[in-house]
Design a protein around this nucleic acid. Structure first.
Lengths: 361, 361
DNA sequence: CATCCGTGTGAATCTCTAT
DNA sequence: TATAGAGATTCACACGGAT
């Protein structure tokens, strides 16, 4: 290593090698989006027969778990050396790689502060119906050591979340539309570009103005771009010259926010959808519960999966209501009634009560 | 190991030892809520709950991770031996232990299918304001091997979620109120009792009626209680006699749902196959019947052997559909339409009607 | 100008059975 | 064990052109 510390630059090269040239303790925060080692096998098609454009790049291929672990141990070790003693590290991954990364960083002496779940508002569905929709990715936020006096901007996060403590589950959309970098033919430049909103929240939580942020897997430069906009200094490492070029251009077009705007971010609150099945799971309406319509002419029974059964018909609260009344559609929430304290109450009451509970929780 | 297989019982003892007495491949699903190895500052605990001295010493920390890893490897290995080749395993944990568990189960040959995030509707706040509110726990769902033909009740999960694919993030409340087991003084019996709703969803997704569910860390019996209620068989292991007693009492008070209330949305894959030719044989679609696609751009004629003919092409309803649309594959049942009462109806309707007839027959 | 509709797409470990 | 054939399977958005 040398004592020379480059700053606000994108360095081209292998991150382990490049980091070796950086001084000890010179970085306040690391954000890393390493290869996931996805191990995709064949071609996957949507129900409409179009082919899914999966990650098929050479940089995501590793021979086996051991090769991936060795690689992980190397870059996490160098990142730790380069980190300031009170610095923190973010890593993002999926179930393919995140467990290995988490275990290795614990072995290396990092101290996990939180695991954060990025809940995707618009994930790709599971086209074959063989698993749960893979609707999230996991970030690990860790201090360099258990003794680190790390930075956490508690009030900033609370303000960002309508004056409620920021939770460990973040609901954010994918990087799509205009934000996604594309070439002249409209083809995405990078298969896994992260949304700026994700970086915005992570950097806003764990760094302050003029802190140095290092991204060892820079890609098309989301981390340095958000860092620059938020008035942080940055250093990014990227192997592929095309990505370096794209990131440099992006950074030219990115302006540091004026000082008075550095901490203003609107937060959208989601109104969560409540599936009828959740009341079955919770025991509020156990399987076997009898429901009626308002006039009590129709009758249906609740099944363990939240469907209703009436004679030989089965369907959701909406579908069965429509079927039995021969209507095109039906709002099952207001159509079906259940009995409580000898009164018949519309299902929708349950939903209203549930919303009220969530607000105060 | 012996060939003796106890069933619907809670076995008292260390789970690794007890599992050694169970036959190979005798269990369809494992649900495990292992000790968390919580590392509070100044107090580090081994899996057996004894306190480790000198937490701040790196060597001790390594020693403790190693102890936890060895323990994890042991119980995951025995669980894998006991699992049926097509069986699946659920493990729940937090950031303190889940990364080690995930890496070890991958090393042992398990194949991760999903990681699931249990988002708590009512988590404990972070009192010191030094981190994000720890508002979730992580479950790993894994098959015994990449070759396992595991069970996933896709349609059941979809029904439970208002006819949308169930995602990998589950929003469920903690176990509180009446559901929480307490002693005569109102003190909770177990520090980490899981909500029944969580088990309801996991078992409903990955098992069917009469499957055998094993819980190696039974605690106060949430897993066997939900398994019993849902008509699954169970086997549970618990070390502490007080918990065994509480779980046994709880199971006595838990009733299996009546058979007609256990029925859920059937999987299409598991419906009996009906050959298209049977409708030709029965005269429902006599040879010469004309079929169209939905847009009525394509036309085919039924042959006596149940193949379709279009120009010089001939093949099954699937093959011909794929051929004419130049698709890799095609579901002929939903692709082709026939005319009845001056309406064009998909072939699949015939199949549905045939199923309904069998029900009433 | 607002609305509707068709099209495209996103870190994906994505089938099962009979022969 | 390899191959062939049947047949099951999608959600949230963004964008652009048409209404």
């Amino acid at each position: 290593m040398t004592a020379e510390m480059p700053i606000n630059r994108i360095l081209r090269g292998e991150c382990v090698e490049v980091m070796k040239d950086l001084p000890d303790g010179s970085v306040d925060c690391v954000f890393a989006d390493p290869p996931y080692n996805l191990q995709l096998r064949g071609e996957l098609r949507r129900p409409d027969e179009t082919v899914v454009d999966g990650v098929n790049d050479a940089w995501d291929k590793f021979a086996d778990y051991k090769t991936y672990d060795d690689f992980t141990r190397q870059w996490l070790s160098e990142a730790r050396r380069v980190l300031h003693k009170d610095g923190t590290l973010w890593v993002i991954g999926s179930y393919h790689n995140i467990f290995r990364i988490g275990a290795i960083l614990q072995d290396l002496g990092y101290w996990i502060l939180n695991d954060i779940v990025w809940r995707k508002s618009n994930p790709m569905p599971n086209f074959r119906g063989r698993r749960f929709t893979n609707a999230h990715e996991t970030l690990i936020w860790a201090a360099r050591s258990p003794q680190s006096k790390y930075r956490f901007n508690y009030q900033v996060m609370k303000a960002l979340n309508d004056d409620l403590q920021m939770r460990s589950d973040w609901y954010l959309p994918l990087c799509t539309g205009n934000e996604r970098l594309r070439n002249d033919h409209g083809v995405k430049l990078h298969p896994t570009q992260k949304p700026e909103s994700l970086l915005h929240r992570a950097l806003l939580a764990a760094t302050t103005v003029d802190d140095v942020v290092l991204d060892p897997f820079c890609g098309t430069g989301t981390t340095p771009a958000v860092a620059k906009r938020l008035g942080r200094r940055y250093l990014a490492i990227e192997r592929h010259p095309d990505y370096v070029k794209a990131a440099e251009q992006r950074l030219e077009e990115t302006q540091r926010l004026p000082a008075d705007q550095l901490e203003v971010t609107p937060a959208k609150r989601e109104m969560p959808r409540i599936p009828f099945g959740s009341f079955v799971e919770s025991g509020t309406l156990p399987p076997g519960t009898v429901l009626h319509d308002r006039q009590r002419r129709l009758k249906a029974t609740v099944a363990p999966d939240g469907t209703l059964v009436s004679g030989k018909h089965r369907g959701s609260i909406h579908k069965l209501g429509a079927l039995l009344t021969q209507a095109a559609s039906c709002n099952g929430w207001t159509f079906w009634y259940f009995e409580r304290d000898q009164k018949w109450i519309p299902l929708d009451t349950l939903r209203q009560e549930s919303y009220a509970l969530r607000q105060t929780a």
